[in-house]
Design a protein around this nucleic acid. Structure first.
Lengths: 339, 339
DNA sequence: CATTCTAAGTTAAACGTTTAACTAATTGCT
DNA sequence: AGCAATTAGTTAAACGTTTAACTTAGAATG
């Protein structure tokens, strides 16, 4: 009925509880013979060390907090959900639990912090995506390791797992240029976001690299979050100004889907009349026709890398500002075509 | 530096640690005066009881597990994400933490259970959505309370929080009938799923109630998961067979969006030529035109109700098969119209 | 006035681990 | 043989709570 404790194992194996503990941590001081005896008992009783007891003496919680804003989490594209799952998976490997919670996207200094922070029931915190500055400010008073994923404010202070957005922007643009396109538009929202800015920078880099001239009328950027509606509108603005666009690089898939909708509604054939490439690779639903070329960002991997880094920082109790930069891949599907 | 412990509080307030503990649980035996002293010290030191120490003596974990399949969690419609957030919110109120993890959608008996179950580091388990039967089987050996949300297998044995799908099916169908429609189609997938079956039953009930004759050629159901692609295909089949359909009730929003796409692609005007109503209310992105009428499912509320029930069961350590049935709402937008 | 009650606290054991310090037995060296 | 070193284990304290059992002082009762 009751869960077996270390005492039960010790009794069964005819050793002291200390020995059992040492076996569990496979300490060298134990002979193979005893180790086997103990391991057997553990197996038979299906013993698992008590998380609480362990946490008490080790003075840690074994938990890692995972925070993101509610609107990021609730977006239709499960971008952050993938990151979370990656973290959760890697947490397993490191004997950590993940406590997930959301904060309001307009978190301000009068809001309460997540309970696991107030109660100091985490050994570290992973923050995914852009979060309000007041949150970062509040958090900075606590002294557990913090890792930002897909967003990196205060880069000198905190660790971060990022994606090479510049490379991605270059990859996408280069793909279009190499396919013979020259009138290549860029559409993007939330342009102050470092990731989006970098994607645009990649676009610019490629233009330079191939000796193409940048044209402001081909660049449609705004402050709002880059969702489908904005993609639709951006495409509308773009095509009323420029009739001769042959390709679009969208700062993310959501906007690309919106832009595709505009093109469909207005008789612009994809990719025959106009190619389009997105970014993120989150459009799984194959109802979108034609299949969207995109830059794949390794979402799960971002999660696993973040948790790996976290486990490392916890184990060696460091707090540093190490960065992990993950490469992206060009995924060519059917929405882009040689001209 | 170190977190303050009960001893620090006791010292500061000049009482024994037992008194502090009693104050924390506001036990009657303590005078108002002492209580104030202690409360002050707690405030000043920003004391929070250690989760581990508490868990050790109370022999519980303070955690609730939350499990769903990966493909449910990663679907584009953040249905289960809303449920989770509801649970997480309510967990706060009950001083519980939520440990979220996914299982494979083809979980079989040789798969490992989530770590928090094996290590018995939860006081109860919430299972959201349909999960493979082998999982349920494995889980049944453990004796913490289990609550199913939006799915209720072994209804005699386990508690469940469900939505009134029959009522929803009736509401949707009635809305169409009352708007003058008679040739009303039903499209649905995963038809063995109890929820979907109930939605269809609601449709049938309404037909009966209003003296309309059911027509099998108006009902397009299949085994596959009801996603956009299937909605597109279902609409295609339907409209090639029946030219005179004036309204469609889709078993969920995702299929409805697919069906709308088919109609758009084939010059069928919504709602002028054909009305359509979905189910779930998950299509937040307003790029979908026209706005989809639907049956709103109280997703967050399902989560909060589940956690409320869980907290209650944990507190009174019961394990029963109580059910909570939540009502749904008819949301009329622009995709349905009086004929 | 002696006794019992009550009110408001305190003492101490227990929860299940980890780990530094200790012990005992064996081995290796001179 | 005598001693040091090594090996393989044990003992016991500590981690931060909760709570049953106890204490003590004053109030109520007969």
């Amino acid at each position: 009925m009751m869960n077996p404790t270390i005492k039960d194992v010790a009794k069964m194996a005819n050793v002291s509880i200390a020995t059992v503990s040492l076996v569990v941590h496979n300490h060298k001081r134990i002979s193979q013979e005893t180790k086997n005896k103990v391991l057997n008992a553990i197996e038979q009783l299906n013993y698992h060390p008590s998380h609480s007891a362990r946490g008490l003496v080790r003075r840690n919680s074994g938990n890692v907090g995972f925070v993101l804003t509610d609107d990021h989490f609730l977006r239709t594209e499960p971008f952050y959900t993938h990151i979370f799952i990656g973290s959760e998976f890697e947490a397993h490997e490191n004997e950590l639990y993940v406590l997930l919670t959301t904060i309001n996207s307009d978190f301000n200094s009068s809001n309460r912090l997540p309970r696991f922070i107030l109660e100091r029931n985490i050994d570290g915190l992973i923050i995914a995506g852009k979060v309000p500055f007041p949150f970062i400010e509040q958090i900075s008073k606590y002294n557990f390791p913090i890792i930002f994923v897909d967003y990196s404010p205060c880069a000198k202070k905190y660790s971060g797992v990022l994606v090479d957005n510049i490379q991605g922007g270059e990859l996408a643009t280069e793909h279009l240029i190499k396919s013979g396109h020259e009138r290549i538009a860029f559409i993007g929202g939330d342009i102050e976001h470092p990731s989006i800015k970098d994607r645009l920078n990649g676009y610019k880099n490629s233009f330079e690299k191939f000796g193409l001239k940048l044209n402001d009328s081909l660049i449609d950027i705004e402050e709002d979050y880059p969702g489908r509606t904005n993609g639709y509108n951006a495409a509308e603005r773009l095509f009323t100004k420029n009739k001769d666009i042959t390709a679009i690089f969208s700062c993310n898939d959501a906007m690309a889907v919106g832009a595709m909708q505009y093109m469909k509604d207005n008789g612009i054939k994809i990719p025959d009349d106009c190619s389009i490439i997105g970014f993120d690779d989150v459009v799984s639903d194959n109802a979108i026709e034609p299949a969207l070329s995109t830059i794949r960002v390794p979402k799960m991997e971002m999660g696993t890398e973040a948790m790996k880094l976290m486990a490392h920082m916890i184990k060696n109790n460091l707090k540093d500002n190490r960065k992990v930069l993950l490469p992206v891949d060009l995924i060519i599907r059917e929405s882009t075509k040689r001209i």
